[in-house]
């Protein structure tokens, strides 16, 4: 069991991911994301090469030492006590610095301004909303559905048919993955 505060993490078990895109579609649907924005993506590597092909689901990894938070010129990021990395869209100026800092290409920018200028950044919230009043219409409009506040699992992991996508306290997630690896004897 974890000692003290949980640190929420995602992990995608690539030996289980079957490239069904359910996580990505469910995410876009649950949060009513605009066209062109996809907070969670499924990517298949080495497609068609036997033994080398694998698929992985990727979104914001909610880093403990989040680089996005370190580079933001308007300090719009904040990290919750449970480790979820969120940002304030009303502060964000859409400069793109967080994208350069991010190892995972998580931040995206809707081209919603005049002449296609970049709008406020959008990324995975681990279904935890944003700084607006919890479950308010405003929060839902800006950040999507706050499932964490309703005691629910993030939608991507909830719909994952093969349980490839794990989410929860980092230690719990690694315990589950360790058990899987030892039972199948490979894949660590």
């Amino acid at each position: 069991m974890s000692n003290g505060q949980a640190r929420m993490k995602f992990y995608c078990d690539t030996t289980r991911c079957i490239e069904c895109f359910a996580c990505s579609v469910a995410c876009s649907e649950a949060h009513e994301l605009p066209v062109g924005i996809s907070r969670r993506k499924v990517v298949t590597m080495h497609e068609g090469i036997p033994g080398k092909e694998y698929s992985i689901s990727i979104a914001c990894m909610h880093c403990t030492d989040a680089p996005c938070e370190q580079v933001c010129p308007v300090d719009c990021f904040y990290i919750r006590e449970d480790g979820i990395v969120l940002h304030d869209k009303n502060k964000c100026i859409g400069c793109g610095y967080c994208l350069y800092a991010c190892p995972f290409g998580a931040p995206q920018f809707p081209r919603d301004g005049a002449f296609g200028t970049k709008g406020a950044m959008d990324k995975c919230t681990m279904c935890a909303g944003g700084p607006e009043e919890t479950n308010s219409a405003r929060e839902r409009h800006l950040y999507g559905h706050n499932r964490i506040a309703e005691g629910k699992v993030p939608i991507c992991a909830a719909v994952c048919a093969t349980n490839a996508l794990l989410v929860g306290d980092a230690e719990e997630v690694s315990t589950i993955y360790r058990k899987r690896v030892s039972s199948r004897g490979k894949g660590a």
Binding site: V35, G36, I37, S38, K41, V43, T44, M45, I56, I58, L99, P103, F104, G105, Q108, R111, G116
Partner: peptide
């Protein structure tokens, strides 16, 4: 059509397409 074009761009984007993994 511009919105669809941007969606199409996102699919083979060098930042958010398949390279999202190879960039890590």
């Amino acid at each position: 059509s511009m919105m669809l074009a941007s969606a199409a761009c996102a699919a083979d984007s060098q930042i958010w397409g398949g390279m999202i993994i190879t960039n890590i």
